[in-house]
Amino acid sequence: MKYFKSWFLLSIFLFIFWLLLAGTDLQELIVGIAVSILISSILVKNISVFDDIKISLKAFICTIVYICIFMVELIKSNFDVAFRVLHPKLPINPGIVKVRTELKSKLGRIILANSITLTPGTLTVEIQEDYYYIHWIDVTAEDIDRSTELIVKKFEKYLEVIFG
């Protein structure tokens, strides 16, 4: 019973993936259900990622808001790179800074790290426990709290609701 939630979510996830790959023919559906249940039964003990997902209305709304914010940040980061690359003087002021996070769940931490990598001017270099080391293309903050405020906070408040 301990693994049931993880097993169920993994099966559903794999089955959606199969649907996107193979289409909705009846034979494909049968094989897809069989294969996704088989794979998730074999792997469920080794995979702990899916334990952290909370299922509630609030989490769902936060997910949608999060995706919107992420998309806006991604587009902003691209224009940021375009500006820096096309500028004749190459205006960069790089450095590796340290920030703190309060997230505990594995999935939340990886999504936070990937979001930091894809947002303007930052790149996750190393994770050690609660501290992320981030390569920042334009260092504006001096200490750890200020840089945490600038880099992490905008994502963290939503991820905290989604994954806890």
């Binding site: 790089p94 450095g95 590796i96 190393e126 260092v139």
Partner: peptide
């Protein structure tokens, strides 16, 4: 190495 104009390297 990071480039010369690097401000700081907390990780190192």
């Amino acid at each position: 190495e990071l480039t010369e104009s690097t401000v700081r390297d907390n990780l190192k």
